[in-house]
Simulated assay, not measured.
Amino acid sequence: MPLAHISLRAGKPEAYRQAIFDGLYRALRETFDVPEDDQFMTITEHDAASFRYSPSYFGVARSDDLVLIQITVSNTRTVAQKKALFGRIAAALGESPGLRPEDVFVNLVEVAKENWSFGHGLAQYA
């Protein structure tokens, strides 16, 4: 049950944003075995004054097309799965909407399975 928050500079067309959703979901399905229809994602757009990043941190040459992706997941995946996810997200978003891999920033937030409620006020995994 990933929960994804995506941030980017304002001004991209709807098709661009939908391609990010689709590529991220495809990468999660392929590397984290996310079930079909398990899609919980938001995109937040920011004007230039509200979107700050380092154009060179860690030796990565970023541009204003940078997309910040934070995914909350259960703490059940291996390091190999995480590496596969990062690579697959960059590749998928390179295919469509055409993002450079340098402009794909991903952060995973891991939580215990009992920290999820999918509705009805229940802790379905607990």
Results as ranks from 00 to 15, higher is better:
M1F: 12
A4D: 03
H5Y: 03
I6S: 02
S7V: 01
S7F: 04
L8K: 02
R9Y: 03
A10Y: 01
A10G: 03
G11L: 06
G11T: 04
K12N: 02
E14L: 12
A15L: 15
A15S: 15
Y16W: 15
R17N: 15
Q18K: 15
F21N: 12
D22M: 09
D22V: 10
D22E: 12
G23C: 11
Y25L: 10
Y25W: 10
R26N: 14
L28E: 12
R29S: 10
E30R: 13
E30V: 11
E30N: 14
T31I: 10
F32W: 10
D37C: 09
D38P: 13
Q39A: 14
F40A: 14
F40L: 14
F40G: 15
M41R: 15
T42C: 13
T44Y: 09
E45D: 09
H46R: 06
D47W: 07
D47C: 09
D47H: 13
D47P: 11
A49G: 07
A49F: 05
S50Y: 05
F51A: 01
F51G: 04
F51R: 04
R52I: 07
R52Y: 06
Y53V: 01
Y53H: 02
P55M: 10
Y57V: 08
Y57D: 05
Y57W: 04
Y57M: 07
F58D: 09
F58H: 05
G59H: 05
V60M: 07
A61E: 14
R62L: 05
R62A: 00
R62E: 01
D65N: 15
V67C: 03
L68W: 00
I69H: 01
I69F: 00
Q70S: 07
I71Q: 02
T72M: 04
T72F: 00
V73P: 02
S74N: 13
S74K: 11
T76Y: 00
V79D: 04
V79A: 10
Q81K: 08
L85G: 00
L85Y: 03
G87V: 05
G87N: 05
R88S: 08
R88C: 09
A90I: 06
A92Q: 04
L93T: 03
G94W: 08
G94Y: 06
P97H: 03
G98W: 05
L99D: 02
L99E: 04
R100D: 12
R100E: 13
R100I: 05
R100N: 12
P101V: 05
E102W: 06
E102Q: 12
D103V: 02
D103S: 01
V104D: 01
V104M: 02
F105S: 00
V106L: 03
L108A: 02
L108W: 02
V109M: 05
E110F: 03
E110I: 01
E110K: 00
V111Y: 08
V111E: 13
V111G: 09
V111F: 07
A112L: 11
N115T: 09
W116R: 07
S117W: 09
G119A: 12
G119N: 12
H120Y: 12
H120M: 12
G121R: 13
A123S: 14
Q124L: 15
